[in-house]
Simulated assay, not measured.
Amino acid sequence: MTNSEWITGYNVRTGREVNAATELNLYIDVLFFINFTMDFLVLSIVRRGMKYRLIRWRLILGAVLGAAWAVFAAAFPYLPVIFEMAVTYLGVSTLMVMTAFNLRKPKDIGKGVIALYLASVAVGGIMEFLYQHTKTGYYIEQILRGNTGKAIPFYQFIFLGTGSYFGIRVLLRWLPKLWQAKSNFYEVTMHYRGKEKRVTALLDTGNRLYEPVSRRPVHVVTYEAVRELCESVSEVVYIPFGSVGKSDGVMPGIYLDEMEIRQGDDVKIIEKPLVAVCKKALSAGGEYQMLLHEE
């Protein structure tokens, strides 16, 4: 994320002393390349962990922003420390997640920045281990000094970073499955007229609600969850239902364009799903906003 975060143990700012007798000359292209690569890997981990939609050009642009700031900070080594930290950990990090994942709401941006910090710490810990317990540290120093004859080839350095990425990716993939296999909770992304809304849904094995004419299964979603998604609709279907304490009633239903149901790596796409809108909350604590039909 910054010039010194990925080159662990070395201060790589131009012209600043590393120790009492050593001054490190910085190669800007090397600094940019290393930071871009690591930022891209970290953003990829965040996307995977937060299940953001993959937009490659945005991911690349987010990594470019992080690497560009690293180069800028290196070119001006005498920036006030407080200013540099504020820009790095607040400004640049926020801009990176907003750019990479197209986030707009403050709450979503905050979650994305926190995820970015956690992923950076995880990758940094792995890189620190490799640095301290292998010859990686020596090779990095040679790269920065311009001793290309002794330096580790770029592809080997990238291999180490990529290894860190895939190691964390395996953990993100398999550990949640231990819980998800026993869970009836799903992540659902609803699409309607170019807009999308992501909610948490519960698979309701007791939901046997069907539209009476077409016999299509009906999912139930809260009004709050679809209010912004469906500000105006062209068609409303009224769906009769019965529940405890209310022998009969009707709920308005909407045909969405598409619904993406995800649990871990398992994804199911439903075209033109019918969702009934409920004004009341479906869970007391707000754990979920939708009830999926048992089918």
Rank of each mutant, 00 (worst) to 15 (best):
N3C: 15
V12G: 01
R16C: 08
E17W: 11
A20F: 03
A20P: 00
E23Y: 07
I28L: 13
D29A: 14
V30P: 04
I34F: 09
N35A: 07
M38Q: 10
M38L: 15
M38E: 07
G49D: 05
Y52R: 01
R56G: 06
W57G: 01
L61M: 09
L61K: 03
G62H: 07
A63L: 03
A63Y: 02
G66F: 10
A70R: 04
F72C: 12
A73P: 05
A75Y: 06
P77L: 11
P80C: 14
I82A: 14
M85W: 04
M85A: 15
Y89H: 14
Y89N: 15
G91M: 12
S93K: 09
M96Q: 13
R104S: 14
P106C: 11
I109Y: 06
I109F: 05
Y117D: 11
Y117P: 06
A119K: 00
S120W: 00
G124P: 08
H133G: 00
T134A: 12
L144R: 02
L144F: 13
G149A: 15
P153R: 06
Y155N: 12
Y155S: 14
F157P: 02
L160Q: 10
L160S: 11
S164T: 13
F166P: 00
F166W: 00
G167V: 07
I168N: 02
R169W: 06
L171Q: 01
R173C: 06
P176Q: 03
P176R: 03
A181N: 08
K182L: 08
S183I: 05
F185D: 02
Y192R: 01
R193N: 07
G194D: 01
E196N: 08
E196Q: 10
R198C: 05
R198I: 08
A201V: 12
L202G: 07
L203G: 01
D204W: 02
N207V: 12
R208V: 13
L209C: 10
Y210T: 09
E211H: 03
E211Q: 10
P212Q: 03
R216W: 02
V221P: 04
Y223E: 11
A225V: 01
V226F: 02
V226Y: 03
L229R: 00
E235V: 07
V236F: 05
V236N: 02
V237C: 01
G245T: 03
G245F: 04
D248N: 10
G249F: 11
G249E: 10
M251D: 09
G253N: 09
L256E: 02
E260Q: 12
R262W: 06
Q263I: 12
D265E: 15
L274N: 05
A276Y: 07
V277A: 06
K279R: 13
K279G: 15
L282V: 11
G285A: 08
Q289F: 06
Q289E: 15
L291F: 10
L292E: 03
L292Q: 02
